[in-house]
């Protein structure tokens, strides 16, 4: 049945790893927005949650880098990071192999997606789940777009992946929610960590809320790197979510630059008709 929820959020590891170093008010507002997003997802009574992430060398490396990948297992493990560093306890997270397989078969009709029967979640999935599904009671279908190891997945292909995910989700009887995770401008884990181009972020989110395909996919990688840093390459996940919304417009429910978290912390939702 048609996708029941479509949104996007930040996944920066600092949100949990360096929580107390942020302005208390800003952190609490972000955490409240995350929890509201979790409530909104649950209100749509999903059977599973597709998480479109931009992983950071937890599973995929330059020896065999897929442009797109989806998990196909009954459980996953995460976070892969040092638990004391990320401050999220490592655990098994439920998946749904049969559902994943149906979705992958659907996506494969138009996009050549790799599949993985094992997948270790990193902060790209574990930080959002920590807030969105703290009970870890919703099966996850992880998906990934290569935003890390150049040559990167082209933006127009990220859009095609989002369209393919939507078509696949609409074709199965399950109620599915989709959340894309990533940063907009950021320079993570470099000497420039904490730099945020807020104006660029707000412009990108305006294009996202308008669900303007041409504007969303018009950036070159050189422009993204100049204005949004290497972390800005993760806009691919937001673009996939916009495509999955099939023309619906979006609402930016929270957007606040928090330098110690290294990003404009964002919670956004596409107003799809569920």
């Amino acid at each position: 049945m048609p996708l029941v929820y479509c949104g996007a959020c930040s996944h920066a590891p600092g949100i949990t790893a360096r929580a107390e170093r942020a302005d208390t008010q800003a952190r609490q507002a972000l955490e409240s927005a995350f929890r509201r997003m979790g409530d909104d997802i649950r209100a749509t009574r999903p059977d599973a949650l597709i998480v479109v992430a931009a992983e950071h060398f937890a599973n995929f490396f330059m020896n065999n880098m897929p442009a797109f990948a989806m998990g196909m297992a009954d459980s996953y493990e995460g976070p892969i990071e040092d638990e004391a560093f990320l401050r999220i306890e490592r655990r098994r997270v439920p998946g749904n192999k049969a559902l994943s397989r149906k979705l992958i078969e659907g996506v494969m009709q138009t996009v050549d997606v790799a599949y993985a029967e094992e997948w270790k979640f990193d902060h790209g999935i574990s930080v959002p789940l920590h807030f969105l599904t703290p009970g870890y009671d919703l099966p996850i279908v992880p998906a990934n777009i290569n935003c890390q190891g150049p040559p990167l997945t082209p933006l127009k292909r990220a859009w095609a992946f989002g369209e393919a995910l939507r078509a696949a989700a609409d074709a199965v009887p399950e109620r599915l929610a989709l959340v894309a995770t990533g940063g907009i401008s950021h320079w993570p884990a470099t000497p420039d960590s904490g730099k945020i181009n807020e104006a660029w972020d707000r412009e990108f989110l305006a294009r996202w809320a308008a669900n303007d395909r041409a504007a969303l996919t018009s950036y070159s990688d050189a422009e993204i790197y100049r204005d949004g840093g290497q972390g800005g390459f993760e806009i691919r996940t937001f673009i996939a979510a916009a495509a999955a919304a099939k023309g619906a417009k979006g609402t930016i429910e929270f957007c606040e630059p928090i330098p110690i978290f290294a990003v404009s912390c964002t919670i956004a939702r596409m107003q799809i008709a569920a």
Binding site: D192, G194, K195, I196, I260
Partner: peptide, 28 residues
């Protein structure tokens, strides 16, 4: 490392003269 060994030699990085997290936060 940048001071001792010079600019990044390979990969995607280039330092951009960032003002630092605290100064950036205060300015915002």
């Amino acid at each position: 490392g940048l001071v001792r060994h010079g600019p990044v030699r390979e990969g995607v990085y280039a330092a951009t003269g960032y003002e630092g997290v605290e100064a950036h936060d205060a300015r915002l």
